[in-house]
Write a protein that binds this DNA or RNA. Structure first.
Lengths: 212, 212
DNA sequence: TAGATTGTTAATCGATTAACAATC
DNA sequence: TAGATTGTTAATCGATTAACAATC
């Protein structure tokens, strides 16, 4: 695999999609695939697909195409999926619980290790075998345990405070679902899921169908 | 406002963020803002901000800047937020309920009008005053009511079936949270929120911090 | 071997940034 | 008016697409 090459964000955002499709193909027992066939499945051009893979060194074989299983594995390696990520969830309302279920049942390699909330009604309940703890205990927990990812499922008003605590507790990344523009030190990777932005974009495209 | 100009997706995705920030500024009573100040707040360059706004015709005034309130309103108009969108949710587990709460309490202009599920334990319960109906009734509901947006919060395996029913029922847009690559006719706008892709991208950036 | 398909270079396209005249 | 800041054109940068030689 090539090294020392800066990969553009556009490429990174396409990799999970490739991987998802390759997983399905592998599940169907398909062993090889050409960039042209992948183009049909993904909607990306064959040319772009080859360019993307060549960022990391040649995964294919001329005249043959790509081996589905090995390409799947390679992309997993690039994405850093060859290890386990420990995650904590802050905010255990419907959204926090939904994310917990999702991670537990769909995402091997991403493990919920603790959950926190301020709501006394939620503290103490168990979600997929994880007991919801008092948010007051987050700081202590992060001191005593190495956590890779903090997931913010709180209200807008608490989000920045939670982010600060997570950063101080040396998490490597924050997955933010709160509708807030939080700020963190550059050493922490921040991935926002802004539902509002997504819904607004949807409204835009609905309003502008057909018209010029 | 200019018309007949194709606006790039990149611009559209920035508009909700501008709007969010302008809303906050308006809330603080700030009346005017320059592209330079907006640049500080958004992280986009002042040049890009002026280019973005000029896609729609000049919103500003030389030597003065932009009027916060009027810019906020204009962007809302562009995004199509000057009307109400009726939405139905299919799949009323934690995620569906979380989205319902979110839309109800945070998103004026986007109204949940009905919710559906196949689970007998959920059918009949009320969520923010909306009763969960049997999924069997979706088709009938869509025939009798005009729905703008269908929100898919089901499992992966049901997602395509739901999308087909929504498309047949003439929804204008689909907001998909199921971890599936669904396909719909071009006449329906599809906005995916692929949590898996987002999490994988986060893993990538965590794995590649520091290193070359 | 002949056919297929990659890896890679070159061309194109589009988006971002820089610069500055227009003008409030 | 002088200063500030937009609107807009031109320059740059980066990403996508096209083309084709390399090679399995």
């Amino acid at each position: 695999m090539k090294d020392n090459v800066r990969i553009s964000n556009a490429v990174i955002r396409r990799l999970p999609r490739y991987r998802r499709i390759l997983e399905e193909l592998a599940g169907k027992g398909i062993e090889r695939i050409s960039s042209k066939e992948l183009s049909n499945l993904t909607g990306y051009t064959a040319s772009q697909i080859r360019q993307d893979f060549n960022n990391f060194g040649g995964f294919g074989q001329q005249g043959y195409g790509y081996n589905v299983q090995s390409l799947f594995t390679q992309i997993g390696l690039i994405l850093g999926l060859d290890r386990e990520y420990c995650m904590v969830i802050i905010g255990c309302g419907n959204l926090g619980q939904a994310i917990a279920n999702y991670a537990t049942y769909y995402k091997r390699g991403f493990k919920i290790v603790a959950m926190f909330d301020v709501n006394p009604k939620l503290i103490g309940i168990r979600i997929n075998d994880i007991e919801v703890q008092d948010y007051e205990l987050l700081e202590k927990y992060l001191k005593e345990n190495e956590v890779d990812i903090g997931i913010i499922c709180t209200t807008k008003s608490s989000a920045q405070d939670v982010a600060d605590k997570l950063a101080e507790g040396k998490v490597k990344g924050i997955w933010n679902f709160a509708p807030a523009d939080i700020e963190v030190d550059d050493s922490v990777v921040l991935e926002n899921v802004h539902l509002s932005d997504s819904l607004n974009a949807l409204a835009y495209y609905i309003s502008h169908r057909d018209q010029p």
